[in-house]
Every structure is written in C-alpha cells, then in structure tokens.
Design a protein around this nucleic acid. Structure first.
Length: 276
DNA sequence: AACGATCCCTGTTGGC
DNA sequence: TGCCAACAGGGATCGT
C-alpha cells in the first residue's frame, strides 16, 4: 500500500525520467483512473505536448509541474504503482494509463483495484480541487507539537483515525500510522483530545523516524498486491514493521502479543504492554 | 462541525 | 478439491 515513503521512493525514481522531457502521447485504458475532470477528455488533451518541469509530492500525491501552468497529479490509491518502460516492452496486467515521452520512455500507471487516480489541473483547480484541503506534508512540513496539540484539543475521534485524516497531516496511511503510534507508545483507540502534552510530543517526534526508516528501505511491499518501485523491485521495510500485520505475534520490544482491533472499519495493530 | 458509515474495486484467502 | 463469501483499504460522499 503506497503511503508517504512509497510515494516518495516513486518520486525519486521518476523525477530523472520525467524532468525536462516532453509528453508525446497519452493513452487512458480505464476511464475510472481519470478523475476530478469536468470533461474526462481534458486529461489527455492537457497532458499531450507538455514538458515536465519538476516532479514534487505532497502527502501521498505526486505532482508534476508542466509548462502552461498545469499540474499533472497522480495518486496511487491502495494498489497503484508507476512503472518505467521502453515503449516496445510488454505491458503488465492492469496497465491503466500510459504516458509516452519524447525519448521513447513510457511511464505506466498500473493499478488493479483502481482506487488510484490521475488528473491534469489548472492553477484554479489546484486551489479548490482534489488535495487542496489536505494538511501539511508529514515529512517535509510536519507541524510543531504545539500546533498538533491545538488540532487535537477536544477531539473525541480515535487518534488513529485522526492520523489517517489527510486534512490534519498528509502522508500517513494505515501501516505507518500504526507504526508511529507504537513508537510513540500510544494506543490507537485513544481519543485525540485525551493525549497529554508529553504524548503529543512523542507522537510528533515519532513521525519522522518512522517515515525515514520506511524510505531508507524503499517502502513496504505487503500482501496480495505488493507495492513495487518503478523499476519493478519490491521495498523491504515489511520485515522491519513493529506492529502492522503482526496480530498474534510477539512484540519485538516487550515480548507480549500484538493485538488487532478495528477502528473506523480499518485494522489497527498495537501492543497492550507498550502502548498506553 | 465532528464523527461514523458506506461505497468504489478485484486478487487472494478462508471456510465449508 | 472446488466454490463463493469475506476481506483488504484511500478517499469521496452522505447521514446523523
């Protein structure tokens, strides 16, 4: 599942491939992948012929800055990946969007479950449309403990749910939210507003090390639809996870048993001995 | 406004 | 062994 470290790994692979190149052809094989357009045809029309200035990222969203003040946004959803190929290479199953560059390279969006999406947006659409309501990036722009405490004050929702809410902080998904809470020693079901000043500080301090550890290992490749880097390799952070996906297994820190509960119809993994 | 539930989608898994 | 229901989950949307 691509979360911030996986998306950032993807960005680092793709940036040298895309930057300075011109897009010469665009093919959409699954219409559902193109979203947030009033007219879906605008996607290919706007993208074709543009040059890529730079490739950035906010939260889990890739943002390619194009000439003509347009932005090509890509969200990988839960099963998406970007693949880099020569145009003559065979296509993987579920290749849903293909973008050909002027040097013969193809960037292919592969996504079996099509929870991902892509769009080309004007500056006005960037201000008001998808992603405009998302909060600061969890890695590059993490709010201070003070600001986090203010945001959490009075909140009854479980802290796990608040970490997944991209409006507060953008980039955490189910895996890294659980890993951050384990590192901060806070139970996922705790009401956001119940965290002490010290706990908010620990939470804030846990975000960067957890995300950077994921990034160092190329992200987490897990389960039936493993996330793959654009060169086809798997990330290997999976075996370093402390709690996520480890229900019934021994806690690496205290030796207790990792538990699984359901919060907001999503799995939460945590250790009763380590987290309060 | 805050919170929770529902939906989208499909490969894999688990139960019978 | 074979079949099918359940499961996984990011984010939009809707109801309370």
């Amino acid at each position: 599942m691509p979360e911030l470290p996986e998306v950032e790994s993807t960005r680092r692979h793709l940036a040298p491939v895309l930057e300075g190149k011109r897009i010469v052809a665009v093919s959409v094989r699954r219409d559902r992948m193109v979203r947030h357009h009033e007219r879906p045809g605008d996607f290919a029309d706007r993208l074709t012929g543009r040059s890529v200035r730079s490739l950035g990222r906010v939260g889990k969203m890739l943002r390619a800055s194009l000439d003509g003040d347009l932005t090509w946004v890509v969200h990988l959803g839960m099963s998406g990946r970007m693949a880099i190929h020569r145009s003559e290479d065979p296509e993987a199953p579920h290749t849903n969007v293909v973008v050909r560059l002027d040097d013969g390279t193809e960037v292919r969006m592969v996504d079996p479950r099509t929870f991902g999406f892509t769009a080309v947006l004007t500056p006005e659409e960037m201000r008001t449309g998808v992603g405009s309501g998302w909060g600061p990036d969890a890695l590059d722009d993490l709010p201070s403990a003070r600001r986090l405490a203010d945001a959490l004050e009075g909140r009854a929702a479980p802290i796990k749910a608040l970490l997944l809410d991209q409006r507060l902080v953008a980039g955490l998904g189910n895996i890294y939210a659980d890993e951050v809470l384990f590192r901060a020693r806070i139970r996922p079901g705790r009401a956001g507003g119940s965290l002490t000043t010290d706990e908010v500080g620990r939470l804030r301090a846990a975000v960067r090390p957890v995300l950077e550890a994921g990034l160092r290992h190329g992200g987490t490749s897990l389960g039936d639809l493993a996330y793959l880097l654009p060169d086809g390799r798997a990330g290997n952070y999976l075996r370093r996870l402390r709690v996520y996906g480890r229900a019934g297994e021994r806690c690496r820190r205290c030796g207790g048993t990792v538990e699984r509960s359901v919060i907001r119809s999503r799995s939460a993994f945590w250790c009763r001995g380590c987290q309060r």
